[in-house]
């Protein structure tokens, strides 16, 4: 019974993945490219950076990077709090 349910789930997921592959656009031709064209055209002039990915990450979409840095900081603080040595009076 459990194996049958797993097999049906497997079939469903593979069917959806194959449908997605069949509908996929050709490589390098996204559906909407206005934003990409703006970045590629103007990044060198506005940010003075050759690496357009870095220009997007640290300038145009800097707020996302701030969120990522916050997530990393929270993870580090969490692990340090989890593994810290307990003080004598806290045991």
């Amino acid at each position: 019974m459990r194996k049958a349910i797993l097999f049906v789930t497997f079939l469903f997921v593979s069917a959806f993945l194959l449908l997605g592959v069949a509908e996929m656009r050709p490589f390098g031709q996204p559906a909407v490219a206005d934003m990409d064209d703006y970045f590629i055209t103007n990044a060198q002039g506005e940010v003075a950076v050759n690496n357009v990915v870095t220009a997007v990450v640290f300038d145009y979409r800097g707020f996302d990077t701030l969120g990522e840095a916050t997530v990393l900081f929270a993870a580090v603080v969490g692990i340090l709090a989890l593994f810290r040595k307990p003080k004598e009076d806290e045991r």
Binding site: Q44, G45, V47, A48, V49, N50, T54, A55
Partner: peptide
């Protein structure tokens, strides 16, 4: 500033990046 188009890159550019 960096010139437009493909170039080797300028190290002393980019502002805060």
């Amino acid at each position: 500033s960096v010139p437009a188009g493909a170039n080797a890159g300028v190290l002393n550019a980019g502002g805060t990046v």
